[in-house]
Design a protein around this nucleic acid. Structure first.
Length: 512
RNA sequence: GCCCCUAUAGCUCAGCGGUAGAGCUACGGACUUUUAAUCCGCAGGUCGUAGGUUCGAUCCCUACUGGGGGCACCA
């Protein structure tokens, strides 16, 4: 079927196919037609005995003696990323997926006229090539395979992009595979992300957390203030929302006895995209019974610091919490992070006492004087906006900002001793909010009141406000243990570890 | 949602109101130690799409589409 389709494409639209692809299609045909070339253009397997990385690890020291011969015969495969063909000797750089390269040398003396001629005719930049032969060092001392047998492992029809010029931003994102072939930083980002995820899961496992997955399609969205994506279920003939947060389900899990639980999965928010926001983003949420927002801050610091350690494995900063950003900046995630008071630092910066009792009028006057605009202003929104205006940019070290106004945090419990605030913190790193943590609200009566307030906000025109979730309230009525909870943006964690923009931390970010 | 910038060869980019340019790639040839190989030769373009202005538009104008940045919103 696929062969047929390809053949038709060759036959019917040859003139429309640009030259480089047409030439490669012809080579593909020749490989497929001539059985003596072994396996065609896309063999099922090639007889690989070693990886390129393995050959380098085992025989790399040959490079110290130019012209050395190991006597060892290996079979390796990789993508041809450079070719330097002369009349009777051809050089190709074969690249493994992680970017490790090895040189293949195809010499007339080793393979004969026929094989050398076919090699030069049929092997293009970008092809996956299998070679077998002796591991040697070239006269210039480069570790090489002196080829005895070669075989195309997979023919590339599309030409490799210019390896010396960086792809433009759009091509990098749309054709990330090319970015990965071409750019070491792109490959490193993927590895760092994978290591980070593994590290987080290990930290959780070490503290007896278990991982669950909760619904991404929800009949009612909640757990955060954000606008959702709406979709439709044919089977249930109903509107569904892509989740904006897993919170309300994870709390149900805690009610059910999953005392330490976390989830790493995607959230979707139908809002603007910029260097710190993506419409779909990976989110970590964790809930720990019988602790509060202080305990969950400890946990969060451990998660991030262990991730920094994991990201540094194999670098000159191994064993430290100092990460290196893409621009070369060193950023220290180590030590105990400061825990500062939102009202306290705001009062200090504004030069006047601001408390939960400060009136909306007074706050609005400060905002007006400072040129800070606040939509649908209330006490909480004004305090948060003013805090961001006065304090946020001055934070250079990772910092927990503690104790938020009650209006902005409908799912959080009141502070145990300070009226008007809730036990919530935001963790700021690199100028953005990396994580947020709470002493969770577990009183079903108060929770219902908060939902009702939110519904009123919604009626007032706040389309991010939550609606009353009766199913969630029913779960709470069965009793949720006291707990601390936390949410952390995974893409932002990668940003903090690598210094990159959010789209660089996501392998395939949304593109239109 | 609003504002600004941007789209030229497979890739990266110049360019200009008067027949479209480079490097790499590709194609033909030479070359047995290259490594951005070198040398000779030769192709490759509806200049994002659709309108408009003009004797003439890749260039100026308008709209649309894609991309980037800023603002707003948000984590």
């Amino acid at each position: 079927m696929s062969e047929q389709t390809a053949d038709n494409a060759t036959a019917t639209s040859e003139e429309e196919i640009f030259e480089q692809k047409r030439v490669r299609l012809e080579k593909r045909e020749r490989l497929n037609e001539d059985a003596s070339l072994g396996g065609g253009a896309y063999p099922v397997v090639v007889p690989v005995t070693d990886t390129i990385q393995g050959v380098r690890a085992r025989w790399g020291s040959l490079e110290e003696t130019p012209g050395a011969e190991s006597g060892a015969i290996v079979g390796v495969a990789g993508r041809v990323v450079f070719q330097r063909n002369t009349g009777k000797l051809c050089f190709a750089s074969l690249q493994a997926g992680d970017g490790t390269r090895i040189q293949a040398m195809v010499s007339l003396a080793e393979v004969g006229e026929e094989s050398l001629a076919r090699y030069k005719e049929l092997v293009d930049l970008g092809d996956h090539l299998f070679v077998s032969g002796e591991v040697i060092a070239s006269r210039r001392g480069e570790l090489s395979i002196m080829v005895q047998e070669w075989q195309v492992a997979a023919k590339a029809l599309a030409p490799l992009p210019n390896m010396y010029a960086e792809l433009n931003e759009e091509t990098r994102v749309r054709q990330r595979y090319l970015d990965l072939i071409q750019r070491e930083q792109a490959r490193r980002n993927v590895v760092t992300r994978a290591r980070t995820m593994a590290s987080l899961r290990k930290t959780f496992a070490d503290q007896d957390f278990i991982e669950v997955e909760t619904p991404m399609l929800q009949t009612m969205h909640g757990g955060a203030s954000a606008r959702p994506f709406v979709t439709h279920s044919n089977a249930f003939d109903t509107e569904l929302y892509l989740r904006i947060a897993p919170e309300l389900y994870l709390k149900r899990a805690v009610v059910g006895g999953l005392d330490r639980v976390f989830e790493i999965n995607r959230n979707f928010r139908n809002e603007g995209a910029d260097s710190t926001h993506s419409p779909e983003f990976a989110m970590l949420e964790a809930y720990q019974s019988y602790t509060d927002y202080n305990g969950i801050a400890d946990l969060t610091q451990a998660l991030v610091q262990n991730a920094a350690l994991a990201a540094n494995v194999g670098t000159d900063r191994e064993g430290t919490h100092v990460v290196e950003w893409a621009d070369g900046t060193l950023f220290d995630l180590g030590g105990d992070w400061a825990r500062i008071s939102m009202y306290g630092t705001l009062s200090e910066a504004a030069g006047r006492e601001i408390t939960p009792e400060t009136s909306v009028e007074e706050l609005q006057a400060i905002a007006d004087a400072e040129g800070v605009e606040v939509k649908l202003p209330n006490h909480g929104k004004l305090v948060e906006e003013l805090w961001e205006h006065f304090v946020k940019d001055g934070l250079t070290r990772p910092t927990f900002v503690m104790d938020f106004p009650v209006e902005t945090s409908p799912l959080t419990r009141h502070h145990r001793s300070i009226p008007g605030v809730v036990e919530k913190w935001d963790l700021y790193v690199r100028g953005f909010e990396l994580a947020t943590g709470y002493s969770e609200l577990i009183d079903p009566v108060v929770q219902r009141e908060r939902f009702v307030q939110q519904a009123a906000e919604a009626a007032r025109g706040d389309d991010e406000a939550m609606s009353v979730d009766e199913e969630f309230l029913r779960a709470l009525e069965h009793g949720m243990p006291p707990a601390g909870g936390m949410g952390m943006g995974m893409d932002r964690l990668l940003m903090a570890l690598t210094g990159l923009g959010i789209r660089e931390t996501i392998l395939f970010p949304l593109v239109k």
